[in-house]
Design a protein around this nucleic acid. Structure first.
Length: 259
DNA sequence: ATGGTTGTTTAACAA
C-alpha cells in the first residue's frame, strides 16, 4: 500500500497538478493539507472520478485537510481532540478498510511564527494535544500512521542552512523537544527508519530563490506506531514535484507499507 | 542586512 502526504497550498490553485499526480502516481491513500477551501467549495467530483473515496475537513481561506483513499474509509474523526474552542481545521483521521485495518491521520500543525507570542503558544499547546491523542493509538496497539505537515525541523541536518532557522518556531529547541516527546512514546519517523542521510527536504520557500539554491527544510513527516512500523517497506520524498510548473512550496512524502 | 513569493481574496494576512 502506497501512502503519500502532500501540503498542496490551495486546492483551487493546485487542482490541475493534483489530478495529474493522482492519475500518474496512483497513491492508494493521499493525505492533503492546506486546502484553503470550505467543504462546500471543495472540488470533489474530479477527484472522485479518479476512483477515490474522499473525506474533507475544510475551512474558508485557511488550513483544511483531506484524506483520499481507493479503499473505503470508515469512522472519520474531524478536529484534534482536547480543546472544544479550537475550530482551526488541522486534523482528520479515518480507518482505511482493507485486509488489515489501517488508521490514517492527516495533520497540518500550526506554523507558530512569530515566536515567542500567542501563535507559538498555540503551536506548543496543539502539539501537547497531539501527544495525548497519539498515546491512545499506542495503548490500543493500533496499526496507525500520522502523516502531514508537522511544521517541525527535527534536526540540524534537516535544514540546508540551520543557522537561518535558530529563532524560527519550526526549529526552536522547545518545538523539537515536543516532536521528540511524541517519537519517544514509541513512534517511528518513517524516513529516518530508511536513511540517516542529511539534505532530504520537503519544503522550499517561494521567496529568495530557495528552490534554485536548494535552501530547503524537512518538515513533512510520517510517524508510525510499532504495529505500522513493522510493515514499513520504504519511505521517500518526491522532490521532482518542486520543479513542476505552478508547484506547491511542499512536495509529497511517500511511505510504502506491507498491507 | 534586506528582500524576496504565492494563495486566498480584494487589503491584508498567512506562510
Amino acid at each position: 500500500m502506497k501512502i503519500a502526504s502532500w501540503n498542496i497550498n490551495g486546492i483551487k490553485a493546485r487542482l490541475p497538478l493534483l489530478l495529474e499526480w493522482l492519475s500518474d502516481e496512483a497513491p492508494d491513500v493521499a493525505l492533503l493539507q492546506e486546502l484553503k477551501s470550505s467543504d462546500e467549495t471543495f472540488p470533489r467530483e474530479p477527484i472522485e472520478d479518479l476512483g477515490y473515496n474522499l473525506e474533507t475537513h475544510g475551512q474558508k481561506g485557511f488550513n483544511g485537510v483531506a484524506i483520499l483513499s481507493k479503499l473505503p474509509l470508515e469512522d472519520v474523526r474531524r478536529g484534534l481532540p482536547g480543546d472544544p474552542e479550537d475550530h482551526q481545521a488541522r486534523w482528520i483521521e479515518a480507518t482505511v478498510v482493507g485486509e488489515r485495518a489501517l488508521r490514517v491521520c492527516c495533520l497540518y500543525a500550526p506554523n507558530g511564527n512569530p515566536a515567542p507570542g500567542p501563535k507559538y503558544d498555540y503551536k506548543l499547546a496543539w502539539m501537547d494535544r497531539l501527544k495525548a491523542h497519539a498515546r491512545a493509538f499506542l495503548k490500543g496497539e493500533e496499526t496507525a500512521l500520522m502523516g502531514g505537515d508537522w511544521n517541525v525541523i527535527p534536526e540540524p541536518k534537516d535544514a540546508a542552512n540551520p543557522q537561518l532557522w535558530v529563532k524560527d518556531a519550526l526549529f526552536l529547541p522547545e518545538t523539537r523537544a515536543k516532536f521528540r516527546e511524541i517519537l519517544n512514546l514509541g513512534y517511528t519517523d518513517a524516513l529516518r527508519a530508511i536513511t540517516d542521510a542529511p539534505g532530504i527536504y520537503t519544503f522550499w520557500d517561494y521567496q529568495a530563490g530557495a528552490w534554485r539554491r536548494n535552501n530547503g527544510i524537512r518538515i513533512d513527516h510520517h510517524l508510525l506506531t510499532p504495529q505500522c512500523a513493522d510493515r514499513l517497506l520504504d519511505c521517500r520524498v518526491e522532490k521532482e514535484m518542486r520543479a513542476r510548473e505552478k508547484p506547491s512550496d511542499h512536495v509529497p512524502i511517500w511511505v510504502e507499507l506491507d498491507l
